[in-house]
Simulated assay, not measured.
Amino acid sequence: MTPNAGAVDLAPGVRCDGAHCFNDNDEAYVVHGTVACAVLTTPAWTDMTLPPPPPIQTVEHQPWAIVIDAHSDRHIVAGCAGGADMGANLSGAYPQSRPPTGSAGG
């Protein structure tokens, strides 16, 4: 997995350079994003007189999150729960003690 190429500041004191993230804060932070996964799905097969339809490749965007302890760094490995990893993106970071509420700007 290679999240966003280049260095990215996700929160004050939290930055990632490719798949390597650094936390310079006094508390743990959760870094999160999504990974695109190529998944094969089988269409419904209702007419048994015909051969089964071939699988169809679809793309699913699955969330991932990893905790980076205070004053430490960590290599991010986000994978797919089924399917082939097509690349991941970083979405942000928040203090582990204060998870986002789901409201705008969280």
Rank of each mutant, 00 (worst) to 15 (best):
I66A: 14
N25L: 07
C16V: 06
Q62P: 03
A88R: 04
A28V: 08
V67Y: 05
R98H: 11
Y29R: 08
V77E: 08
G82Y: 10
S97G: 05
D24C: 00
V8F: 05
P95K: 13
R74Q: 12
V59Q: 09
L10K: 07
D26I: 01
A38R: 15
N25A: 09
D24M: 04
T58A: 05
G83P: 04
G92S: 02
N25P: 05
V8N: 12
H71C: 00
L90M: 10
Q57R: 15
V8M: 14
L50F: 03
A38K: 12
N23C: 07
F22I: 06
I56K: 13
H71V: 03
Y29D: 05
T101R: 14
H61Y: 15
A44F: 07
H75W: 09
G18C: 00
H32Q: 11
P100L: 12
T58Q: 15
C37M: 07
E27T: 02
W64P: 06
N4E: 11
Q57V: 14
L10Y: 08
P99S: 13
A65Q: 15
G83N: 11
S72P: 03
L50S: 11
D24K: 10
A84K: 13
Y94V: 03
H32G: 03
C80Q: 10
N4S: 13
C16I: 08
I66N: 03
G33N: 01
T2R: 12
G79A: 11
H75K: 13
E27Y: 01
A5P: 08
D17G: 03
V35A: 11
D9M: 11
H20P: 00
V77A: 13
H75A: 12
I66C: 02
C16L: 07
V39N: 04
D17N: 15
Q62G: 09
G33E: 01
P43H: 06
I56C: 00
T49N: 13
D69F: 06
T34A: 14
T101F: 04
V59P: 05
Y94A: 05
C16H: 11
V67F: 00
E60H: 14
V39I: 13
D47M: 01
W45Q: 10
W45E: 07
T34R: 14
H20D: 11
A44W: 01
T101K: 15
L40Y: 03
V8R: 15
P3A: 05
D85C: 02
P63K: 08
V8E: 08
A81C: 01
P63I: 07
P3W: 08
S91A: 14
P3G: 07
W64N: 11
I68P: 02
L90K: 09
D26C: 00
P99R: 12
G102F: 09
V14S: 02
N89A: 15
P54K: 11
L10I: 08
M48P: 00
G83F: 05
S72M: 06
T42D: 14
A38N: 13
V8I: 11
G79R: 07
D85G: 03
P63L: 10
M1W: 12
A84Q: 14
G105R: 03
R98G: 01
H20V: 13
P63D: 13
A11I: 02
A81R: 14
N89W: 10
H20R: 13
V14L: 07
V35D: 07
Q62W: 00
G6Y: 00
T49K: 12
G92V: 00
L50A: 15
I66K: 10
N25R: 12
A44N: 06
G87Q: 12
I66S: 14
